[in-house]
Structures are given as C-alpha cells and as structure tokens.
Amino acid sequence: MITAGIDCGAKNVKVVILEDGKVTGKAMAPAGIDAASAAEKAFDDALKMAGCGREAVTKVVSTGTGKSEPKFKNDIVTEVGADARGIHYLYPNVRTVIDVGAEEGRAIRVDEKGKVVDFAINEKCAAGAGAFTEAMARALEIPLEDFGPFSLTSNQEVPMNAQCAVFAESEVVSLVHRKIPKQDIARAIHNAIADRITSMVRMVGVTPDVALVGGVAKNVGFVASLKEDLQMEITIPEDREFVGAIGAAFVAADAK
C-alpha cells in the first residue's frame, strides 16, 4: 500500500511517500503565500522520486500549521501526533521529541509504542521558534545558513535580556554599536532560544532518548546550546525536517 504524508509548515511544505512501511519519496517546497499550490508541487516532486502517480496513493494525511490547505488530503492529524508517530518509526527508543519549527516549538513525551503521553507547545510567539533566530540573523546581517556555525566561533558569554524577537532585534543592534563581536552576540542569541526551549521540555520531563526535529535542528549553534542546557546527547534524524510528514504518512497507513 502506498500512502502520503504532508507537513504544511509555516515556512516549508514537506511531503513523504510511504510504500509498505518504507519511505520511497520525499520533497520540500517553500510555503510562500499560497501553501495549497506549494503542497501540490511538493506532492508531485515526491511522487516523481517514488516513481508512481497520484492514483497509486491510497490515502493522504496532512499535518502542520496549514494542514487544512492541501486540496488532495483525505484526513488530518495534529502536529504532536505526527511527530510522535514519525519518531517512533525512525528511532523507537526516543521518549522525548523536541520539534522546533519556523513559528512553533513543541516538546512531546512518547511511550515505547510511540503513543503521546504528554506535550507542551509554544506557539504564536516568535521568541520560542525559528523565526527568532531568523530575525536575529537578519539584524546581524549574517546569512541564516552560516548563523549556527558562526556562533560556534564565539569565546565570550554575553547576556541578552530581551524575551521578544522585536525587542531582541534592538538589543542586538545596541550590542553591535557597543562593538561586541558578532559571533558572541550570535552565541547569546542561540543560548537565549535554547533556554526557552529547555524550559518547555522540562514541563513534559526530559526522559532519554531525546530527539530534536524540525527545521531549526539544522542549526548547529542551536543544537550546541541545547545540548549544554539539557546536559545530554540529542538524537538528530537525518530527515529532521520530514519527521512530521513521515508520521502523517504512517498515520494514513495505520488507518487503512
């Protein structure tokens, strides 16, 4: 049986094609202003990789902020449910999933069967999501993809007080004016967001193994700060951005 999972995120749409419990195709497209067409494009790209047509897909399940957008979906699943299912397939030993996306942060505790035991969400505030690092990278005039590695070259701790992305932007500008090295500011930014994510994770309890998924998991600066805060190793799947979509595809397959 072939099923598909779509994760319609705030920034990117991710699609996964699943055939008999194996991922055969995946694709990603920027959500832009029209998430529905982005989903169509990603779906076609993923099908191309899997080597099959739309008619071969038995069921499509959608998740993510824009989960109601794709016209070709058959059902929807919550982001928490999709993450839990996805991580259980990839790493069955994981008990705590941390998902940091562009506009939302989540911490989920799962049992040995991949069932959700508890979760906490930080939504609707940029300070606890990828949008924070993005805005700060812009304020520092550093390309987002270089931002993480750049922060690792810091050798000095600088305190950051602002808890709001907009206020933090002004704080960053004043730190630059005070001639604080940019890499130290970058480090402070990653520490600040990691602090907030850690507090959220503590609300559900930190049970190993811990996995980090979502787009922000690509940022090595954030990962370093988070490891330091949690004082433990963190599993980061290679397909960190596709975990939700994989989960959704499994939910589609489970439902039959």
Binding site: D118, N161, S199
Partner: peptide, 18 residues
C-alpha cells in the same frame, strides 16, 4: 525584574504539563 519577562519559563518547574 529579571524574571518578570519570562515567568512562563521561570515558573515552569512548578508547573508540569501533566
């Protein structure tokens, strides 16, 4: 003062999601 802007996080240890 240093906690007033982040009490959601500062108070988190006393407030489990469960």
């Amino acid at each position: 003062k240093e906690h007033s802007k982040k009490i959601k996080y500062s108070c988190a240890p006393c407030k489990p999601a469960a």
